[in-house]
Design a protein around this nucleic acid. Structure first.
Lengths: 189, 189
DNA sequence: CGCTATTACTCATATTCTTGAGTATGGTGA
DNA sequence: TCACCATACTCAAGAATATGAGTAATAGCG
């Protein structure tokens, strides 16, 4: 019952079709939620049935008909209820961390490569987040925007995403470096 | 099929019963994996059947008999295979971020409280991680330990956990502050 | 003219995770 | 002494997620 709140939050940006959501959802949530298209379509259907969102069909001449969904007042009420309910603890799951944790008992080479690859991915995300944030705050500087902008939620979560990815990139590079040094000295394994 | 790798990594610290694992797993994985006791018991049973770990019963006089599991050579081979397979992208899921993302459309009060609460939780984890790291590196300084310690995997992941929680605490406090300021100005909602 | 990519979805199945309830024994505090 | 907590697990059912395979039409490329 949590995906639906993430979907509601995403739809606050404006009405969207399942297809559009599916493409922007992960990035739009600044990587603090993830869902596959199939899940989103299913959830949107259920949410409409429950009255939290409302769909309207848009017939296109050259493309298949799509359904654009927007949050209803019942949806807003549900979000309010959600905001007031106690939050579950954050939930991180990362294969790469597991690999690093076990690195003393495996060969380090592959792990080093994956750390470097992950650093690059993180850097790319940093770029996306920074561009999004620049666009959001426009001419204002960050402080001014946060003090008086009228929609700061997405900006704030993006800030968290940005810092998370910066830490990820730093840690990956540093860890890769340390493991490489040791590989040079030791005989791998 | 990913929990099993996390369990294998956790068992590298030494043999452990399901019960002990259940208590230490989340913290021991520096919060980069999470599982409930029931999942762990089930997974341990399957892993033993698959030959990745080996259990031995320890009959205790005053407590129920427990089974201690340790990683077999097949388990090590599986870890090696895992280390070399391509990693899935990291996976974060956080209710609180969803709430912040939607905060412009809900009352901010409850969200502020949860941000502050989360900052405290993060601070407590920082403490745990720091104490673990001190214990691990002993007299050596960090650089020396990382260069020549013989088991650095858990330390490295703990480092990541530490920084993650520090960022969490900072961001939560900053975000709570910003929202409080705006609440003072605006009329909530 | 065929090939692939893009838009816009659906359905079914499988795996994984969570929730809730139970079992059994011994130690601890009021 | 009696309830409650800790140890040490098990089982079953349900919800949530992931995987894989389709459908169907247009647009652009060579």
């Amino acid at each position: 019952m949590a995906l639906r709140h993430a979907v509601l939050a995403a739809l606050l940006d404006g009405e969207s079709s399942g297809y559009e959501l599916a493409k922007t959802f992960d990035a739009g949530m600044a990587n603090f939620w993830h869902a596959l298209p199939q899940q989103l379509y299913l959830e949107l259907t259920k949410m409409e049935k429950d009255g939290l969102i409302q769909g309207r069909a848009v017939i296109q001449e050259t493309r298949p008909t799509k359904r654009l969904f927007s949050v209803t007042s019942a949806g807003l009420a549900e979000l309010e209820r959600f905001a007031e309910s106690s939050a579950k603890p954050a939930f991180v799951r990362d294969d790469l961390l597991v690999k690093v944790r076990a690195v003393d008992s495996t060969s380090a080479k592959a792990v080093i490569e994956q750390l470097e690859e992950r650093a690059l991915i993180a850097t790319a995300k940093i770029d996306i987040f920074e561009r999004y944030m620049e666009r959001q705050r426009g001419d204002a500087d960050e402080q001014a925007f946060l003090n008086s902008g009228d929609r700061i939620g997405p900006y704030l979560t993006c800030l968290r995403g940005l810092r998370f990815e910066q830490e990820t990139a730093d840690w990956c590079r540093q860890t890769a470096h340390i493991l490489r040094e040791r590989c040079g000295a030791n005989a791998d394994t």
